[in-house]
Amino acid sequence: MIRTLHRYCIAFTVVLLSACSVTPHQDGGVSQAGASTAVTLASWNDTVTKRSIVDFVTLVTTPESRDFIPRADRIAVFDNDGTLWPEQPAPVQLVFALQRVKTVAGRHPEWKRQEPFRSILKGNLRNVAAGGDAGSLRVVDGAAKPLAIDRVIGRRPVIAFGNADGDAPMLEWTSAGDGPRLAALVHHTDAEREYQYDRASKSGKLDKALDEAAAKGWLVVDMKDDWKTVFKPANATTSAAQDATVK
C-alpha cells in the first residue's frame, strides 16, 4: 500500500524499536540475543548485521541495562526513497502521482490545458521535469532533514536509517545525541532482486557517506548479503487473503 507522503519525503516513525548496533560484531560469533534471532527479522539472513540489530534492541529494551531507553523515547526516523521503498527506476511516489493524474483526469477537463497535467497526460515527462516547482516534485536538501525531524517530532531520534549521501546530515545529527544511538545506511547491492547502485547513480547516490560510514560508526546494510527477502512473493498476499477467508 502506498501511503500519503509527508511533504519532506521523510517517514517520521515512532516505533517500539527495531534498530542496529552502534558497534557491529566483528568476529561473526553468536550474539547475546542469538536465541531470539530465529523469530526476529525473519526476512534477514543470519549475518553480523542482523545479530547487531538484535543485540542493540536487547540492550536498550532490557530494564536492567544501563543503556535502557523508555518506550516513549524509542524514536526512529527513516528516509523514504531507497530506504522504505524503491527509488529505481523512478521514485514510488512519482509513479503513483503520474498514475493518479491519469486516473482522475476525466473529472478535470481543465487539466488538458494546465501544466504539469497537460504534459503528464501526453506522456511528456521531459516537460514535467523542466517545469520547476509547479511541474516537479521538490526534493528536500539533506541538510534540512534534521530541521524537519525536529519540527515534527521535537526531539532527537535514537536511530536513523537512510541510503544516500543526502541522508548523512540526518545520521550525523542522530549519532551526536547522548546515550546509545545508531545510524544505518541501506546499500543497494542486489541487481537481481532489486537494483544495484551507489556512487554513480543520479538518484540515491551513495558515495561520500559510504566512505565515511566505518569511521563514524554507521552500520551498512548490504541488501544482497543481509536480506533473505527483498519483496514478498506475488502470490503471498493472495494466499494470506485466502487463508483469512477460509478461517
Rank of each mutant, 00 (worst) to 15 (best):
S203H: 10
A144P: 00
M170V: 08
Q196T: 05
R181Q: 03
A129E: 04
H187E: 06
K202G: 08
A130E: 10
I149S: 09
S203K: 08
A143H: 04
A184V: 14
R156W: 06
L121S: 02
Q196Y: 13
G132D: 05
S203Y: 05
V158I: 10
E172D: 14
A144E: 11
D198G: 14
P157R: 02
D198K: 15
R199V: 15
N127Y: 00
A184W: 15
D133Q: 12
D150N: 14
V158P: 02
E172L: 02
M170F: 15
Y197M: 02
D133W: 08
P157G: 00
L182G: 13
D178N: 14
Y197F: 15
E194M: 06
L171C: 01
D133A: 15
H187N: 04
P180V: 02
D178S: 15
N163V: 03
G142N: 12
D133V: 12
P169V: 09
L206C: 07
I159T: 02
S201I: 13
R193D: 12
E192M: 00
A148T: 07
R199K: 15
A191V: 08
I149Q: 08
R151N: 13
N124F: 01
R155V: 04
Y197I: 10
E192T: 09
A143M: 07
G179Y: 11
V186R: 07
R151D: 12
Q196K: 14
G132N: 05
A191D: 13
Q196V: 05
D190C: 06
R126G: 01
A164T: 09
T174N: 10
A191S: 14
A183E: 12
G154S: 01
S136E: 08
I149R: 04
R118C: 06
P146M: 11
G162M: 11
L147G: 11
G166N: 14
W173R: 10
G179D: 09
E115M: 08
R155C: 06
R138Q: 12
R118W: 00
M170N: 11
L185M: 09
I120Y: 01
I149L: 15
H188C: 06
